[in-house]
Design a protein around this nucleic acid. Sequence first.
DNA 1: TAACTATACGGAGACATTCTCCGTTTATCA
DNA 2: TGATAAACGGAGAATGTCTCCGTATAGTTA
Lengths: 193, 193
Amino acid sequence: MADKGKPAAVRKPRADAKRNRVRLLETAKAAFAAKGSGASLDEIARTAGVGAGTLYRHFPTRDALVEAVYRNETEQLVAAADRLTKLHPPLTALREWLLLFVDYIATKHGMYEVLNAIVGGTSDLYSASRVQMKQTIGRLVDRAVTSADIRLDLDPLDLLRALAGVANIGSGPEGERAAKRLIDILIAGIRAP
Amino acid sequence: MADKGKPAAVRKPRADAKRNRVRLLETAKAAFAAKGSGASLDEIARTAGVGAGTLYRHFPTRDALVEAVYRNETEQLVAAADRLTKLHPPLTALREWLLLFVDYIATKHGMYEVLNAIVGGTSDLYSASRVQMKQTIGRLVDRAVTSADIRLDLDPLDLLRALAGVANIGSGPEGERAAKRLIDILIAGIRAP
DNA sequence: TAACTATACGGAGACATTCTCCGTTTATCA
DNA sequence: TGATAAACGGAGAATGTCTCCGTATAGTTA
């Protein structure tokens, strides 16, 4: 509690640590894509050419690793919302973003489990991402409500939860099509009279 | 292929086998409710007072056990559809059954994973249940389509997938309420103009 | 009732995976 | 060019899955 006041001489993070972290992320991404997010962590470590201890030091739990692997993708999704907001009228922007959301689940292998954990789970690990996603869809929805296009007495995240449930199925193109039709149904259902 | 023609002297199933099966199912149900469907199978066997071999002989895989535990519940859900069809006009019956579906997910601890595997998964183990559920919701939807209440160019199972995704959240009452509101949105979205 | 035998039992153990601990190595900084 | 904080690696403990096979027993038959 005492000598905390001198963060002056903070060491530069070690180069090997940074390198290993990147290697682990790359290896893990490949492994998750190939074998689902249940891939063996020890094997990932071995493939990445590091010891198991190193993997667990960087990512204490499986979830931490999964989250790190997909954080980037999630951020892209969040960023897209701004772009769509500028390009389209409220309801169209919302619709386009939902389509994008479905695309992500259907396309990026492994994305389902993560997005589901983010929008649906309770794990604290994803709470940061959950807040981001909530704000993102929240803004899109609010805008459409303000413009009197829709009415929605539902947590906007529930729209994503519903879509995730449908888009998942087998990750095949069938699920994607179904989810896109569901978007129209949902929008029709929340449209202001 | 030869001597199949004489199933005359079929032995009565052994009493201990039947007894152990029941004990395992009871123990497993409790374990799944307490620890989720990832509970240790060896521990279930031990608690039930049988060897691991006995458990695996009766239920070769975890899924087989899970399926057996919840088969009964699923059958109740299927049966309810008939009752509702007799009691209510088409759209109301559909709506009531969807409410029941949500109730099951929210109430029966552990039901989520199973219902999700049934309506959403691809595992062959659940294919029988999946067909049943598909027929059940299919009949309810068809009836409402025929009476010109709704139009639906979507696999009716997708309605369940969407609801399952929302009702799950934390299994708390919040998810249940949200799912019920989603039912209204969905019905509004598929209502014929 | 007493063999007989198909059926089921139990649990040791092979194997896989997760995760920790700690002696050794190495990158940074002075 | 040391000194040392930071990071490494991998053995191994803990836990879980699933199989194998010698043993026990319920049902059948004489």
